[in-house]
Write a protein that binds this DNA or RNA. Structure first.
Lengths: 117, 117
DNA sequence: GCCTTGACCTGGAGTTGCTCCAGCTTGGTA
DNA sequence: TACCAAGCTGGAGCAACTCCAGGTCAAGGC
């Protein structure tokens, strides 16, 4: 699979995929005889995970660390688990933020209603 | 009130407050005879709103537009309402993203459990 | 056989939204 | 009067993309 399809499937843009590869956040993307990238299903799964981690606020540094651990092998599973669990905690915080903002918006909108009469 | 306290109350950093003022995203912050900023309660409310809008992903451009509308006066309330309602919609999308990511994390963590035995 | 087209490549500049820093002013305390 | 904390400005630095110029390569049309 080529980069255009990889982008469609993972949710990332073509440029972002190249950027992630360059910065070492994606393990081993093979190249064809034409020097162009060929994505395996494993690559797509990885990129998709990165997409969601990034979308929900994980910093590049952490993603990079996670990728390094992945490349070492099974001996790092415990550490990787900790990274993901920490991110799950982070999601809770984000959800609370959304709740808080939603309340604030409802409050503001109610005020506007009063002014308009 | 001075900038340090304004930062504490709004959630923004001192630098970010200055940055927002410079880029025209905060209406009229008064200055004392020492040329230092003095924040009114209205300022704090505004900065707090900005904090939550930004925290939940509203781009600077939109916040800036919202600020411009605010400075025109009550005649723009309808438009401002639309900005906030659009953002409320955006919050729903974010919540769906969090759900999706949470599922993915749960799935990955389950796989790790299997590997570890 | 040559030309065009389209997908991909690289290196590097540009953008957004902060964040940090040097060097200066000012008001309050010892 | 000397010093210190808190604030000021302009500008550099940074994260995470995003866009662009200029080039390669394979396939299809004439």
């Amino acid at each position: 699979m080529r980069i255009a399809e990889a982008a469609l499937r993972s949710g990332l843009s073509v440029d972002t995929i190249r950027y992630y590869e360059k910065s070492g956040t994606v393990p081993e993307i093979r190249r064809g005889p034409d020097r162009q990238r060929r994505f395996s299903q494993e690559n797509i799964d990885w990129l998709t995970l990165l997409y969601w981690l990034r979308e929900t606020g994980m910093p590049m540094k952490t993603m990079h660390r996670f990728a390094s651990l992945y490349q070492v092998g099974d001996s790092t599973i415990c550490e990787r688990k900790q990274v993901l669990m920490a991110h799950a905690e982070h999601l809770k915080k984000r959800r609370a933020d959304l709740d808080r903002c939603e309340q604030l918006l409802a409050h503001k909108l109610a005020i506007y209603k009063d002014i308009e009469g």
